[in-house]
Design a protein around this nucleic acid. Structure first.
Length: 574
DNA sequence: GCCGTTTTCGGCCCGACTGTTTTCAGTCG
C-alpha cells in the first residue's frame, strides 16, 4: 500500500513550493491531497483501479495524474522536478515551531542553512544575530524549537507505525506460511511514539531463512540493513527501521515477553523468577537446564504465579504487584466504546454532511455520534456562527428522521476564550446535547492563567467536556502549560468529563492523566476528532491510550448507551 | 491545483498575535 508514501510526497512538494514562494492556494491543494490520501482507509491503488481518484475531495485531474504515474512507474515527474537540487534537510527545518517557509528561505539564502545541523552551527556561531528582522527573541524561539525537534527525532507516531507493522506482517503472510507473527516492543505496548518496529515470527528453524528472505523482499523495504539466519532488518521509505526475529514455537511466549518489554517490566519479572529459583530469558523460563515454560506468554507468567498481563500495562507502573494481588484492571476495549464524542461535519472543517457522518458512524458499529463543529472564534476551521449552527442543527433533525435506530447528538467544540468565557452564549449552549470546550488560541499564557482559564470553562454548567487538555502535537508542539490536577479537581466537582482526543499526534490526555482522572472520579470522553469517515477509525489509538492509562469500560462515558448518556447529561444540567 | 443550483474563470485563506518594526511580515490555528 503506497498511501503513506504518496501522501508524504505531496506534503513534501507543498513544503518545497511554499519555501520557493509559490501560489499559496496551489500549495494548499497539495496539502489537501496529502491529507485525503493519508486518511484513506483503502489502498489508493484500488481507488485508482476503479478510476475514481478524481472522486476524492480535493483531487482533480492534475493530482490524479501524478498519483497514477507513481502507481504505474514508481516515480513522479512533478516531485522530481520540484525536489531536484533542493536539499532534503531543509524540509526538516519547517518542523521547528516558529520557523515557517519565509524564515527557512531567508536562512537558506542569507546564511546557507540547509539542515538542522547547519542551523545548530549557525546558532552556536552567533550567525543569526545580524540577519535582518531577526533579534534576540526570535533567535531564542528558534533555539527552543530546535531543541524540541531534536528531542523528538527518531520517534515515529504510533498512528504511522502500527499500520506499517500490519503491512509488514500481511506482506510476510502473503509470501510465506507463518504460525504466528506479532509486533512486539513499544508498538505492542501502544506507546504514543516508537523508535523502531520489532516483529516476531513464530516459525521452525528450518523455515527461518525463507521468512527472512521474504522480509528483505517486501515492497516497503527501501534498504536492507541485515538479513541473517534468524534475524533481518530493513529501513522503510519513511526512514523507519523494522527488525524481524524468527523464533521457534517453544520460545514464542518467552520471546514475546522479552521483546515486548518494557525493560523495567522485564527487570521486575526477572527478579520474581530469581526469587523462585528460576531463570527467565527470551528462550524460555528455566530451572537449571530444564525449560519449564516458554511456548506462550500465559505459561511464562504462570511460572511466576501471575496472570497474563496486557502489554499496554507493562511499564512497571504497579502492574506486576496488581497482577500478584489478583487486582489487574479489566481494560476497556473497542467493543466497550458505543459512540464517538468528537467529530466534525462539513459545516466546519469536516468533509461530510451531518447525515453522511452519522451513517459512517453507524456503519463503523457505533450507536451514536456527537457532531461537534467548531464555534465562530475559530474562523480558519469554518467555526459556526449562531445562524449556521442553527442551520446545522436543523439538518441534524432531518438526519435523525432519516436514520432510525441511531442517535445523533447536537454538539459543539466551543472555543474557550482568553478569559475562560465561552464562544457561544449560555442560551445557545443550553440548547445543545453535548458541549466540548477547547482552547485554540493564546497558547503562550502562564500556567496559572491557563489553568484558571480552563477551570472556569470546566465550571460552566453548559460544558460537558474539556477537549484536548494540553493542545500538544506530539513531536511538533509542546502542550500549553496547564495544571492537569487542578483541572481534574474542578471536573470532579462539577461532573465535567475530560476528553481523550484519539488523533495519533494528540493523544491528549495522556495515559498518565487518564489514570489520574479515573482515580479522581472524572469520566473520560473518547473522541476521534474525525473530519472524515475514514478518520473515525483513529479511535483505536484513543482506546490504546486509555488502556495504557488503566481505564476500564466504566471509566469512559462512551460506555453508556445513548439513552443513559442523555440521562446523565440531563442530570448534570438539572 | 480545485471547484461551480450564484461562476469553466476567478475565488479559495481569515484574523490574531508576535516581534520587529514606525507600518508590517511571518506564523499559526
Amino acid at each position: 500500500m503506497k498511501n503513506a508514501e504518496i501522501a508524504r510526497m505531496f506534503q513534501a512538494m507543498a513544503d518545497v513550493m511554499e519555501i520557493k514562494g509559490e501560489n499559496p492556494f496551489r500549495v494548499n491543494s497539495y496539502r489537501n491531497a496529502a491529507r485525503v490520501i493519508s486518511d484513506l482507509a483503502e489502498d489508493v491503488a484500488a481507488v485508482a483501479a476503479r478510476g475514481e481518484l478524481t472522486g476524492l475531495p480535493g483531487v482533480g485531474e492534475g493530482t490524479a495524474g501524478k498519483i497514477e504515474q507513481y502507481l504505474a512507474e514508481g516515480r513522479m515527474d512533478a516531485y522530481e522536478e520540484l525536489t531536484e537540487g533542493f536539499p532534503v534537510g531543509v524540509l526538516e527545518l519547517l518542523r521547528i515551531p516558529g520557523m515557517g517557509p519565509k524564515t527557512v528561505a531567508k536562512l537558506m539564502d542569507e546564511r546557507d542553512v540547509r539542515s538542522l545541523d547547519d542551523l545548530e552551527k549557525a546558532l552556536q556561531g552567533g550567525e543569526l544575530e545580524d540577519v535582518p528582522g531577526m533579534r534576540a527573541k526570535t533567535i531564542r524561539k528558534i533555539r527552543a524549537g530546535l531543541d524540541l525537534v531534536r528531542r523528538s527525532q527518531g520517534r515515529t507516531l504510533l498512528g504511522e507505525a502500527l499500520p506499517l507493522a500490519h503491512e509488514v506482517i500481511e506482506g510476510l503472510r502473503a509470501r510465506v506460511k507463518l504460525d504466528g507473527a506479532e509486533a512486539a516492543g513499544s508498538l505492542r505496548r501502544r506507546k504514543e511514539t516508537v523508535g523502531d518496529i520489532d516483529i516476531l515470527v513464530n516459525s521452525r528453524a528450518g523455515d527461518a531463512e525463507g521468512v527472512i528472505e521474504a522480509f528483505a523482499g517486501l515492497d516497503c523495504a527501501s534498504e536492507v540493513l541485515a538479513a541473517g539466519g534468524t534475524r533481518g532488518s530493513i529501513r522503510t521509505g519513511q526512514g523507519l527501521q523494522v527488525d524481524l526475529r524468527v523464533v521457534p514455537p517453544e520460545s514464542w511466549g518467552a520471546a514475546l515477553v522479552y521483546f515486548t518489554g518494557s525493560k523495567a517490566h522485564n527487570v521486575k519479572i526477572r527478579g520474581l523468577a530469581h526469587e523462585r529459583g528460576l531463570k527467565i530469558n527470551e528462550y524460555g523460563v528455566f530451572r537449571g537446564e530444564e525449560r519449564v515454560a516458554g511456548a506462550t506468554e500465559e505459561d511464562v507468567y504462570a511460572t511466576l504465579g501471575l496472570p497474563w498481563i496486557p502489554p499496554e500495562l507493562r511499564e512497571d507502573r504497579g502492574e506486576v504487584e496488581a497482577a500478584a494481588a489478583g487486582a489487574l484492571p479489566g481494560l476497556i476495549g473497542p467493543e466497550d466504546v458505543l459512540g464517538d464524542l468528537h467529530a466534525h461535519t462539513n459545516y466546519s472543517d469536516g468533509v461530510l454532511a451531518p447525515l453522511d457522518m452519522a451513517r459512517a458512524a453507524k456503519a463503523y458499529g457505533y450507536r451514536y455520534i456527537a457532531l461537534t463543529d467548531h464555534s465562530k472564534n475559530l474562523r480558519i476551521a469554518g467555526g459556526l456562527t449562531e445562524e449556521r449552527l442553527a442551520r446545522r442543527n436543523d439538518e441534524i433533525d432531518a438526519a435523525r428522521a432519516a436514520l432510525k435506530g441511531f442517535t445523533i447528538l447536537k454538539g459543539t467544540e466551543v472555543d474557550i476564550l482568553k478569559d475562560g468565557s465561552l464562544d457561544y452564549s449560555d442560551e445557545v449552549l443550553a440548547a445543545l446535547d453535548w458541549v466540548v470546550a477547547s482552547v485554540h488560541d493564546h497558547f503562550g499564557m502562564s500556567e496559572k492563567d491557563m489553568t484558571e482559564r480552563i477551570v472556569r470553562a470546566a465550571r460552566s454548567p453548559h460544558v460537558d467536556c474539556i477537549g484536548h487538555l494540553t493542545g500538544r502535537l506530539i513531536g511538533t508542539r509542546e502542550g500549553y502549560a496547564v495544571d492537569a490536577s487542578a483541572v481534574l479537581a474542578a471536573c470532579a466537582e462539577t461532573g465535567t468529563c475530560l476528553e481523550l482526543n484519539a488523533q495519533p499526534d494528540r493523544l491528549d490526555i495522556t495515559d498518565l492523566v487518564c489514570r489520574e482522572a479515573a482515580q479522581a472520579g472524572v469520566k473520560v470522553a473518547l473522541g476521534s476528532d474525525a473530519h472524515s469517515a475514514e478518520s473515525l477509525r483513529l479511535m483505536q489509538f484513543g482506546i490504546a491510550t486509555a488502556r495504557r492509562g488503566w481505564l476500564g469500560p466504566e471509566d469512559a462515558i462512551n460506555h453508556l448507551t445513548a439513552a443513559r448518556l442523555r440521562k446523565f447529561l440531563a442530570s448534570r444540567k438539572g
